[in-house]
Write a protein that binds this DNA or RNA. Sequence first.
DNA 1: TTTCGTTACGTTAGTCGTAAAGATT
DNA 2: AATCTTTACGACTAACGTAACGAAA
Lengths: 304, 304
Amino acid sequence: MERREIETFLALAEELHFGRTAERLHVSVAMVSKSVKKLERAVGAPLFDRSSRRVALTPIGSRLYEDVQPAYRQLLDGFARAVAAGRGVEGVLRVGFLGTAVARFVLEVSEEFRIRHPDCRVELIETSYADVAGLLGGDAVDVLLLAIPDFAPDLSSGPVLFSEPAVLAVSARHPFARRDAVSLEDLARDKVLRPRGLTDELDALTVPVATPAGRPIERGDGFSTIQEMLALIGAGRGVFPVPKHASLYDARPDVVYVPMTDGLPYEWRLIWRTAGETNRIRAFAAAARDFVAVNGNPLLPAEE
Amino acid sequence: MERREIETFLALAEELHFGRTAERLHVSVAMVSKSVKKLERAVGAPLFDRSSRRVALTPIGSRLYEDVQPAYRQLLDGFARAVAAGRGVEGVLRVGFLGTAVARFVLEVSEEFRIRHPDCRVELIETSYADVAGLLGGDAVDVLLLAIPDFAPDLSSGPVLFSEPAVLAVSARHPFARRDAVSLEDLARDKVLRPRGLTDELDALTVPVATPAGRPIERGDGFSTIQEMLALIGAGRGVFPVPKHASLYDARPDVVYVPMTDGLPYEWRLIWRTAGETNRIRAFAAAARDFVAVNGNPLLPAEE
DNA sequence: TTTCGTTACGTTAGTCGTAAAGATT
DNA sequence: AATCTTTACGACTAACGTAACGAAA
């Protein structure tokens, strides 16, 4: 009972003519004959009553058709649905991002993506630090724009889309506020705020746990949103390294952004579950790659 | 989406382990890997999230399983039903016969058949001449015990089970009644009764339409049952050739059976629709063949 | 180091189309 | 004679297992 035999049986049961069946299936007439014969051999009884003038279903063949036709249809439907979800660039793609600033980038890439693939709707989902791991693991978003390198073995990431130096957000009254630059080493002199809900591992990837010289970098209050973080900074409760674009998008009188000399650069890339990779994701990643190839870092002024 | 791929997918979705899946399907682990990969390639997305330590369904894989599992089950059920109807010797076999005398033979063969195939019920259906063509053509019986050679191109027949000479049933007051024998030539001197509902072709096969010398053999009144035929004979309304065993089983004072010198012998065999041939039929034919090989003609006294 | 999934490769079996044959009207 | 199904045969593909390899704990 192979797929080809079933398809041949169903087609012949409908056409009742070997020639037309062969044409419909794009195979030779000989193959139709052989496939039917093989199925009949497997069943142990003729399925068609045929002469060179007439082709008709036997009672057993008729019963088999009634049973198999809907089941096979259902099978094809299920398969088609899986293909649409996997290969087809249609349906819905859920793109997560972190912070309102990058929303602009995601929006512009989505615009390009929508032009290329009009059948695929894009849902933009702003997420908090706490959800970074949860969202991807829990199948709440398909792809996430992050500046954190691969942090889990079952995740894949696209190429670096754009890179930014780190700046340190400090209170306007903080001693650092008057300096031209700070280094990682300086982080040991204050407390670094901590995004709430992040695993220790992820937190360490965002901000090192020790300075290059080996001094521990202490963690301070937790926060859930960017705004909350900035409020804590303004109140002098600690410092936090952010990508440079934040100095443009999140300017506040009580917060100063000081360039970091040796902070890890923020390398933005798309991240998705390896096991959940689909054509939609590949297409979105391609659109993002192509977008930055033309426009460069969309969050910072073009460099001369 | 081949059968093997579907089975592998379903088995792996249930086992979540390549080794056990391979064992269950009696294939190598390599084949499981390749089949799954091929299906994933066709779908365009991973169906399993797997490492050397863990195998889990992806959302797309999970959805595909939900869709495919019941459909495939239904497909197998339909196929199994066809196999049971065709290859399996189980279910019901409807055996038709003509005249109560041969019922004894059919009964004894059924007895043997039942011993060989306890899962198959046998239904005995006595039929009238009128139904011979209709019963077989209309799927009312599966196999029929007849003494008429192949009369339709889409019918098959087994070997001759037993053979009997023809005798002519005549009225006890008929001139033939005192003769030791009659010939086909004599049939032109009276009217031959005609089974009702028989096609001309079938009627001609039962009783020739002309004598060897070319004189027409006229047909008389019609009858539907053997008893009716005998009543007409007794009343002197005509004659009718019957197999010799009728002289033993249907003896009546007003009817005399005269041996025919050149009548076609009655060659009893099983007949069935070629397109409806099943293992049940083959098995019943085999039982009948074996029965007569041991017992000879069960309707006549054993010859010395 | 063990367990488990993947890749490589050579053998084997089966698929397929062309063309000739057989059957039916 | 024309139409339609079946059989024969040769080229080719892919299915399969063994064994080596790679990754994970």
